[in-house]
Computed example of a mutant assay.
Amino acid sequence: MSLAVNALSFRAGNVDILRGVSIAPLTQRLTGVLGPNGSGKSTLLRLLAGLATPSGGHVSLDNLALSHWRKRERAKRIALVEQQAATGLDLRVIDVVRLGRIPWRKAFAGQDAEDDQAVEQALEWTHLSHLRQRRWQHLSGGEQQRTQLARALAQSASELLLDEPTNHLDIHHQLELLELLKTLPARSVVALHDLNLAAMFCDRLILLDRGAVVADGAPAEVLTHQHILDVYGVDAQVTPDPLGGCTIAYRRLRGAGANTQGAGR
């Protein structure tokens, strides 16, 4: 089974961040969550992880509301990689990755062979084995991002949630990361800004705008000229890709004159 969302709402002060969002079970290998800044992507991921309490509706895992799951059991099933992960502690890469094994350890028990294997596999997947002894504070932004991904992978969860995981990564590592997610045994839900990367890698896309779902389906169904114009205010040319999905060339802002047309026209 998998995560699903029913009439989910979230309110912060007097602001509705999410409004009645319903999402059918997230059974696809890689689901992308799209939308402008402030559309509710990060909030949705935190609610899917059980780290925030909805104002209405609920998230379920295996047809059971997350509120009924024990925290440790939920952590064995759901791992979240957030946008910012800072620490004041002088941890090594391998120390951060080992944190992913906490839900699996018995009280007062140390690292066992299964933990070691999961950590080593996570380091290998993220190409961080050679940096295992490097201190967190000495890592680049991209290396820190990959270390947090390795920590989540070591968690051995069946549901992997990632909030803008391609931030701080060059194009090579962006492609490498998304290709990795396609091969993992876990189902991944990824918040992305790059529509072309989403079209290239995701099996399903969920487009948010002002806290509501505008479109949900295959990339070619979601990334239409009209949806991009309505949600982002950008005139774009959407071309079917013979290898699957589509390619998007941004032309100009809605209502802008010819002098503001961007590259890709």
Rank of each mutant, 00 (worst) to 15 (best):
K182R: 15
S156T: 15
I102D: 10
G110L: 11
R132A: 14
R105Q: 15
R132G: 06
W125K: 12
Q155H: 08
L195I: 04
G110R: 10
Q174W: 03
E120V: 09
V189W: 06
N167W: 07
H130I: 08
Q174R: 08
T166P: 06
E159A: 09
T183L: 12
A186Q: 11
I171A: 03
L99P: 12
S188P: 15
T147F: 08
S188C: 14
V190H: 06
E114D: 13
A152S: 01
T166K: 00
W136R: 11
D116P: 07
Q117L: 14
L195S: 03
I102W: 14
R146L: 14
R101C: 05
E114W: 10
T166C: 01
D115A: 07
L162H: 01
R146C: 04
L192D: 10
P165M: 01
D163F: 05
A118E: 08
H127K: 15
A152T: 08
H193T: 00
E159Y: 03
N167E: 01
N167R: 00
V96H: 09
T166D: 02
R132H: 11
L99V: 04
A186M: 06
A186K: 06
G100T: 02
Q133G: 08
K182L: 09
V119S: 10
A186Y: 03
R105V: 11
S140P: 11
R187T: 04
Q117P: 00
L128R: 04
T166S: 03
A191M: 06
D116A: 13
Q111F: 13
H173C: 00
L184W: 06
D112R: 06
R187L: 10
D112W: 10
H138G: 15
L149F: 09
W104I: 02
V189P: 04
L160M: 05
H173M: 07
A150L: 09
L131E: 12
A109L: 04
S129A: 13
G100P: 12
E114H: 14
D170F: 07
I171D: 05
R101D: 03
L175W: 07
V97C: 09
V96L: 11
A122T: 10
S140F: 07
S188W: 01
G142E: 00
R134H: 13
K106N: 12
R101A: 04
R146Y: 03
Q144P: 09
A107C: 10
Q144A: 11
L153N: 01
K106R: 15
I171G: 05
E120W: 14
K182V: 00
A191F: 01
D194F: 05
Q117K: 15
G100E: 09
Q133A: 13
D163P: 02
H127D: 13
E143Q: 15
Q155S: 11
